[in-house]
Nucleic acid binder design. Sequence first.
DNA 1: GTTAGCACTCTTAAATGGTGAGTGCTAACT
DNA 2: AGTTAGCACTCACCATTTAAGAGTGCTAAC
Lengths: 344, 344
Amino acid sequence: MPDELDERKQRVLKAVIDDYIESAEPVGSRTLARKYDLGVSPATIRNEMADLEMLGYLEHLHTSSGRVPSSKGYRFYVDGLIPPKPVSDEEKVLIDRWYKGRVKRIEEVFQETARIISQVTKNVSLVLAPQMTQAQFRCLQFLPLDDRRVITVLMTDAGFIENKILDMPDGATFEDFQRMAGVINKNLMGHTLHTIEHHSMAEIKAEIQDEQLYEAALGIIHRALDSSKRERLYLGGTTQMLAQPEFHDVEKVKDTLLMLEEEELMKDILHAHMGDGLGVIIGQENEDSHFKDSSLITATYHLDGELLGTIAVLGPTRMEYAKAMSLLEYMNTNLTDVIKRFHW
Amino acid sequence: MPDELDERKQRVLKAVIDDYIESAEPVGSRTLARKYDLGVSPATIRNEMADLEMLGYLEHLHTSSGRVPSSKGYRFYVDGLIPPKPVSDEEKVLIDRWYKGRVKRIEEVFQETARIISQVTKNVSLVLAPQMTQAQFRCLQFLPLDDRRVITVLMTDAGFIENKILDMPDGATFEDFQRMAGVINKNLMGHTLHTIEHHSMAEIKAEIQDEQLYEAALGIIHRALDSSKRERLYLGGTTQMLAQPEFHDVEKVKDTLLMLEEEELMKDILHAHMGDGLGVIIGQENEDSHFKDSSLITATYHLDGELLGTIAVLGPTRMEYAKAMSLLEYMNTNLTDVIKRFHW
DNA sequence: GTTAGCACTCTTAAATGGTGAGTGCTAACT
DNA sequence: AGTTAGCACTCACCATTTAAGAGTGCTAAC
């Protein structure tokens, strides 16, 4: 069914959606004729809208009381009709100023990216930070905490620092750990975390010469790597979203917040749409009932062809798609630049 | 005006508040007579309530429609009438299990403490983590990030690790930094962060022997200390609070969330009530208009007589004071224990 | 193919009335 | 004197009514 919609129908559909996005109210033929320059009378528009409804692009709450876009309508809109709405210059200035500012820890970069996105879109933002597998191992340090425990600090070249507290195995002394650190550092320096995981530990084993200590070293490496490998999800704008009229009902707010707290679930959802470049999932297209009247816009960021992570905006289906999409694209390039500066 | 209230008036007042806390509805004489064993008829209770209202302990929305406690009423309640409501055994088990679990990073301890408090009280919790001034300096490490920047890592004996990215001054090489680290570590090892701040840097200066590098070292020490010294505020339960009927209005939710986001403001408020042991600030007693129908319960925790920080519950004036208070006390001892284990 | 006109539908807000919970007062009771 | 029953009165709350307004769908005329 190509060109199911003639040009005028498309114009009407676009006008309906534009207006609904702006007003959050069902839109009628009169308003449309008045506000948009369609060149036809309300009656004609009514006919067109009736057709659009028949075809599934619009919906009717009740007979009378204007139309509301359906998922199919939104889909058609974002796929073809969307008016370009680039990030405004003031916004760019604000964003650039922040990104050009003093160098921050990489975590702050992600957190702040989330904050900016939510600030601009007035919706919830999600930033999935990349796995650290490509980061280069820089060094592992041990520090005695007390007689039973040591602090393990893992550092990578990306400025990412991860620390853990570990129990020392019975009989081991801190000196053993010191020695171990030397061996480990010598052998792993410069490798990426990814290769380390599959790295032959033979040399380390040979150097340590103590079966039990070797086992401990292995465990430590893996546990230290473990949390660095895990992707992190940064959220922003859970307060901003209350400004949206669809969240005037506290129950919805609660549902959404509870869902967002399910970190693993959210990560899975973002993963499912990774690699699509700019992806839009609209309302009921999503099986997940929690999202049934929300849309999710995702954008994947890369570096040297490698997938790094995803940034996303979650909001009501009635969302400023154009703005959110261009913002995500803009943030994407910024984020990629910063990450490059951190030579990930 | 001591003993302004005879024993029966007190019983009535307590019954009114208990019931209101439970039901969130204005309470009338009939209900009171039925549910509480006051031994008198509704009519008598009405008279007593009229007296209590005259004295300012209760309030009337309109003629008819039951009474609601005033700030003064709550104040009298928490100061004298509060029924002991110890933390339940199941709750204790849950809490203990967590605290006894594997050793975590100190940050996690605070974050989790906040989570537990909000979970149990269904209100917002605040945990003000102590300044690190009493922590002992363990070591400062530098790691090259690129040719212009180094990563600075500060570690203390409390398992607290802080890292920053610093620009290298022109002309300095990473080797200079390495040497500097050696000097700094040798001189500061074992000192508390507090003494370091006022520590004579003469020895360090003497050893470094290079004016410019010395200045840089000073700056680094202070900047590294800077963020470790800052108190941190952990929040919990911003989702839980939606369960309270007083937050059925989204506007209130928004106000409260925005206020909570003002980290410095919240810290100031907590500071203002530090050292009171268990403190309760009720509704309008608080000048801050944002809080006018909220209460804040704070508890300060100490170690060896030194003030460390504050944990608090923020909720509607209609709050389970008894429970919140005993929970805070319980968490206090737990938190102190854990901190002791970290030999702060 | 487009438009004006009109009957019809449905939402929203304001007005109405009845019900129930609660009070305050008075008079009777202990 | 303190306590209680009784009763008139006040509101808040709910359901119903009413009127207005927005919007549609259809028909007939342009």
